[in-house]
Nucleic acid binder design. Structure first.
Lengths: 213, 213
DNA sequence: TACGATGTGTTACTTGCGGTAACAGGAGTC
DNA sequence: GACTCCTGTTACCGCAAGTAACACATCGTA
């Protein structure tokens, strides 16, 4: 087994792995997150044990699948975050990038975030272990950018992390709700969220009667 | 079957139901969300079919279980939100109420929000369908309070809803991260989040070099 | 007192999933 | 030709959800 051959084998294995992931992608996007290993194997034109040899278990397959989409999303967010522009503009552009992504591929989004929406027997992918990581990674990324760019005085690192996770959570929850109800345009949503971050809640006056919220 | 007897039967059924829910609670809090129907039945001292007669299916049991905790949490949040105090104080007190709740009973919290953290075969409760409702209800509640109390000018209803869901998401994500890492005290977290909502991100200066985030 | 209706409980089963042996070629290597 | 991997299969195990069919008690009624 010389080096060349080993490389060939590795290449072949990687190609196979990609093919399997693409098949899994198709099935998951078609059948939802409760797609069974059997179904995925069938879509790929093979049988279960091969999947298990490649991915260990269902969680491994899921993780591999999630990583692809997650990496893609994170890198586009990072680009928006790093663009040369004023802070407000960047915030809006990042929000918009995220919302555009979930709007464009809601199936992928639902897979990553709400995997357990099974229509059948609830044998869904275990998303709990994996949706959190996406949010966490986004939160940490954002925290890093905030800490690098914004002057927050003492305790800035911790503050940045709280804000990173908080802002990501805000974006996520609002996006999730918006995706379900579509109560307004994407641009309006972006603007509303940016306004919130810009302190409009604190600046607004009370309504008549009582001390106000 | 006269009225008296019907009432007796109903009473008995309701009592039984409560007992079953309490048993389910114990098992879920002990074994995590992957608790099997068999295990719950055993804890209650009966067998599976009775559970199914009472709750229809596993999702029904879950929903009943979740409703109890959800209602309790929502009512305490509502109290904090409706207290007679200045806006900032209310916001902080509501955040603190939520965080105190998840801190005090992390098992319940994890059950409601991250049900799929199974250690075994991932046969967990289907939480995806139910964690969202809790967040949604919190978001709608908050939106309602904002709209009632804060003067936001035209488009206020929509703005309030966006903010309601966004703020709840912020609180949730930050709380989830904080609960896992405990990077600071609860009071510090509350203060940091309130500062974020009060526009400190927009007000902060840039760090040296570049246009800043 | 015998009798059917109703609610509570059981055992035993089916179905369907994740996951795993154990076996069957095929392609290079000594 | 035997040896070793790699890819692929069939056939199975274990386990959990959910269901059918049966058994016992209780109680109003003829």
């Amino acid at each position: 087994m010389d080096t060349t051959q080993r490389t060939d084998q590795q290449r072949s294995a990687e190609r196979r792995r990609r093919e399997l992931l693409e098949a899994a992608d198709r099935v998951v996007l078609r059948d939802g997150p409760q797609a069974s290993m059997n179904a995925i194997a069938a879509e790929a034109g093979i049988t279960k044990p091969i999947l298990y040899r490649h991915f260990g278990d269902k969680g491994g397959l899921y993780a591999a699948l999630a990583k692809r989409h997650t990496d893609a999303l994170l890198s586009s967010l990072r680009a928006a975050l790093d663009a040369p522009a004023a802070r407000r503009e960047r915030v809006e552009s990042t929000l918009d990038t995220y919302l555009a992504a979930i709007e464009a591929r809601p199936q992928v989004y639902r897979f990553l975030m709400h995997p357990a929406e099974s229509t059948g027997t609830d044998q869904g992918f275990d998303v709990g272990k994996h949706s959190a990581p996406l949010l966490r990674r986004m939160g940490e990324d954002l925290a890093q950018v905030i800490e690098e760019r914004v002057d927050l005085g003492p305790g800035s690192q911790q503050l940045a992390r709280v804000w990173g996770h908080g802002i990501v959570g805000m974006m996520h929850a609002a996006g999730d709700w918006w995706l379900g109800e579509r109560p307004c345009s994407r641009a309006e949503l972006v603007r509303s969220l940016a306004d919130l971050l810009w302190g409009r809640l604190a600046a607004a006056g009370d309504k008549v009667g009582g001390p106000g919220f």
